[in-house]
Structure formats: C-alpha cells, structure tokens
C-alpha cells in the first residue's frame, strides 16, 4: 500500500470512532429496567401498551385540559373517572408512589429527561410517609 502508514492510521481512527458503542459498552449491557407496579391498584387510566408509549401525550393533554379548559375529570375507556393530576392521581400513594421506582427507571435507561419535575413535586419516598398526608 502507498502512504500505508497514514491510511492505516486513518482506517483505525475511523474504525475506533465508528465502533464507539461496542468498546464503550465492552459487552456489558445492563438489564432491562423493570418498573415497580402498584400493589393494590391494577387498573391504569389507559391500557399498559398505551401508557408505555403515550403517557407523555396524555399528560400533556391533561395539563391543557385542566389549566385551560377547566375540565379536570378524565373518563377512562372503561368509564371510570379520574382526577387529571400527575401529582395527585398518577403519583398517589395507591398508584405510583415512588418516582424512583417507576418513572426514573425507564427514563434513566433511555436517557429521557422530562421537565415535569421542574415544577411538579414527586411524592416523598421516606419509608415513614403516611398516606393520610395526601388528602
């Protein structure tokens, strides 16, 4: 090869850059995160599949509905009514009481940084927490 040195160095640099994920992870894939589902409450406002992929849009809808249209009751497909509230419904003690065991698991895994929590208050996660406080 002519200019072999330079070309090989170039190829190596290229390969190193392009294979970055392979050597960066060096074969170590953390396990798929498992979220902790509520113990008592088995029914979410929508199906699991729906919530998995579209919860952000649902929440976006909720916030507009609550703030701008003053419609605060959400009618689930099965007819149940829910108070549209991230803090008080989704993250209530009965449901996803711990942000770190629910929201954060997937968000951290997939590198998603939602700005909900810039304002909204995640539930307290000290074990002593009393459910009565939520009222």
């Amino acid at each position: 090869m002519y200019d072999g040195g330079k070309i090989i160095v170039g190829i190596i640099i290229g390969l190193v850059l392009l294979t970055f994920p392979i050597w960066y992870t060096h074969g170590m894939a953390p396990k798929r995160p498992e979220v902790k589902l509520p113990e008592k409450e088995k029914q979410c406002v929508q199906s699991k599949e729906y919530m998995k992929t579209k919860h952000m849009q649902l929440l976006d809808l909720w916030r507009d509905s609550v703030v701008r249209v003053a419609q605060r009751s959400y009618v689930a497909p099965n007819g149940t009514k829910y108070d549209m509230s991230l803090q008080n419904t989704c993250m209530s003690a009965e449901c996803h009481a711990k942000k770190t065991e629910f929201c954060d698991r997937c968000h951290d895994y997939t590198g998603v940084v939602p700005y909900c929590w810039d304002c909204h208050i995640p539930p307290k996660e000290e074990p002593k927490e009393k459910p009565e406080e939520m009222h």
Partner: peptide
Amino acid sequence: LGGFTPSEILLHMGHKPTGLKSREA
C-alpha cells in the same frame, strides 16, 4: 374542539380531550 384551538389539537396529535367538569365543582 373542546375549548382547544386547532393548533393545540394538532399538538396533541389526534388526542381529543375527553375530560369533564367534575360534579362537585
């Protein structure tokens, strides 16, 4: 449009608000 403007509806990508006023309001 359920009180939403067309652009807001567009932003919700086909989600129409199905909210209600709660009875005790």
